[in-house]
């Protein structure tokens, strides 16, 4: 049983690695990559946050079945469109079941999302603490990280475009010393 689990883990991780690498490579080279949901472990998500090349990274945890998350989603797209060229990266993490990646993909396409979303394969305490030791685990939640992976601020619950923009302006100004 252990051997079978080990083989499954290896295959599963390698299978995940391909779309993640393509996604990362495509983004860095300016190649359009298909918008989709990518099942990912806590380790992979953490690595993605740490390797973000932008000065400010907004990590947003959401789910397709979460009403406030759905209501808030268009605001996030507007935020991406306004600030992606000004030093902000957005990493989406869906709390949907990884088996439902098709539902996640359909939602992203319906919303014309410019970014793909990870789908967390673990939603346990290590996942929560990887993002923030003070996060209760409630959805939706947003976390702002500096380029060194340092958590700058966070909040729980739905927010407006203006609330996101205000926080991003302050943080980018603090990090870069310039007004975005």
């Amino acid at each position: 049983m252990r051997v079978r689990n080990f083989i499954f883990q290896i295959c599963f991780r390698r299978a995940l690695l391909v779309p993640i690498l393509l996604f990362t490579y495509g983004c860095r080279c300016g190649i359009p990559t298909p918008i989709t949901g990518i099942p990912a472990s806590t380790e992979i998500i953490q690595s993605s946050i740490l390797n973000s090349t932008e000065p400010l990274t907004l990590v947003h945890v959401w789910a397709t079945w979460c009403r406030p998350c759905r209501e808030e989603f268009p605001e996030l797209i507007k935020i991406h469109n306004e600030y992606a060229s000004k030093g902000l990266a957005i990493i989406l993490i869906s709390a949907d079941n990884p088996n439902d990646f098709g539902i996640v993909e359909t939602f992203l396409l319906e919303q014309n999302s410019p970014v793909s979303s990870f789908i967390a394969t673990e939603l346990d305490q290590p996942f929560i603490e990887m993002l923030s030791p003070t996060w209760s685990g409630a959805l939706p939640s947003s976390f702002f990280f500096g380029s060194n992976g340092k958590l700058l601020t966070e909040w729980e619950g739905k927010k407006s475009y203006e609330q996101y923009a205000e926080t991003i302006e302050v943080l980018l100004k603090e990090i870069t010393g310039d007004t975005p």
């Binding site: 003070t134 601020t153 966070e154 909040w155 926080t167 302050v170 943080l171 603090e174």
Partner: peptide, 19 residues
């Protein structure tokens, strides 16, 4: 001091209720 001021502004924007 500037960074501290900026962080206070962000803290004011962040709504987190304590347990």
């Amino acid at each position: 001091r500037t960074i501290h001021l900026a962080m206070s502004t962000v803290a004011a924007l962040t709504i987190t209720s304590l347990a």
